[in-house]
Design a protein around this nucleic acid. Structure first.
Lengths: 208, 208
DNA sequence: GACATAATCGAACGTTCGTACTATTTAACC
DNA sequence: GGTTAAATAGTACGAACGTTCGATTATGTC
């Protein structure tokens, strides 16, 4: 029972790598078997279906995202500080060298936005969860008086997500050297707008 | 020579429809043949390769984009008016019922951002062109004094694109009823920021 | 209407796909 | 170390993939 889990993990790791580059659907059991040095059937036995393999890939991607983006942000004080760290970590994640093909969720979300089933459901759930984390951080920032209190935090989270999508596109497709600058400027503007009229607006502006 | 062109167009039209839903790579000659009531080989003869078919699909998508988004904007006065119309038309395009699977470029861009070849090249060119159109409209708006003259119009175009990506995601994947509102608000903020300190800032604000 | 050519079809190619089954090897436990 | 179960390999499957080729039908032209 031990060996199986280890190889399964190794398979999924490699599968994630392959999926970020080629896409989650183009991920094939045959090439994955060759890449891992296993037989097709031996590899297949770990999952039972391609869909289960794809879900396993998304799950390990979620775990990595949580470990690299969300978890380290807990070192920062709740509120604005943590919110900024979340975005900072997110940008690093999208550019991570361990994800040779960019953020796996961005690719999968576009791939599955017109299909029904458990994969799509998982993607929606994952993104809603992530937007919830961002919105919660914004909520806390409002409570601390660093954002104005009529801020629509769901909209705010959506806007951050849009910035990240633009960043991903500029980096991955256009290879625009200004991509990072554009994203940072957009985020700064978003923060400024959220701060406008906040109780601590002046003090907050001083620390930045 | 006439009949061939007609059927070819019909094929590509149907192919575009299929590609927006399933993706440009998942577009298969077999299913496309069934869907059009043709034989696989008869259909194939029109293109000579799958890649040529995919390029043909992108070309017709470009033509439609030009016809539905860019061309009608020429009825509007150059500058801010036209810029707003461009974005307005773009949002309508992304939601167009003729594109049952959303904007074909968004899907293809994510699909090909990690692959080399003529398809990727075309996608980059198409997007650069579109960003150029947006930037040119912004440039004109600056020249007319409706935007501040230190505005980075390339960055501005990028930001609009990011908003559109967020809009597409909210509509297609999340099916968020607030998606449109979020996008419009973000665009309004972007305009406001570009207007800040512009020569005609007050007059411009009055017309909105 | 005959002729040339364009358009389409039918059948088959070799691969790869996901999956199913049965062996065989390997690892875990007493 | 032998036994049992887990893990992997082997083989095969039907279907779909893009592509080729030769035959056949439809079209446009004189």
């Amino acid at each position: 029972m031990r060996k199986g889990e280890r190889t399964r993990e190794a398979i999924v790791d490699q599968a994630l790598d392959l999926a970020t580059v080629r896409g989650l659907e183009a991920l094939s059991i045959g090439t994955l078997a060759t890449e891992t040095g296993m037989s097709k059937s031996g590899l297949f036995a770990h999952f039972g279906s391609k869909e289960a393999l794809q879900l396993a890939v998304l799950e390990v991607a979620s775990a990595r995202f949580a470990a690299q983006v969300i978890k380290p942000s807990r070192d920062e004080a709740r509120g604005l500080r943590r919110l900024i760290t979340l975005v900072e970590n997110w940008m690093a994640w999208a550019n991570s060298e361990t994800l040779s093909g960019g953020c796996p969720f961005v690719a999968a979300q576009v791939e599955w936005d017109d299909r029904e089933g458990p994969i799509r459901d998982y993607l929606v759930w994952a993104q809603q969860t992530w937007l919830g984390v961002l919105a919660a951080a914004a909520e806390k920032t409002v409570a601390q008086g660093d954002f104005r209190d009529d801020l629509d935090t769901r909209a705010f989270a959506h806007d951050i997500y849009a910035i990240a999508l633009g960043y991903h596109n500029a980096q991955r497709l256009l290879r625009d050297p200004n991509g990072e600058k554009y994203a940072r400027d957009a985020f700064r503007r978003l923060l400024k707008d959220a701060r406008e009229g906040a109780p601590n607006a002046v003090a907050s502006a001083q620390t930045h």
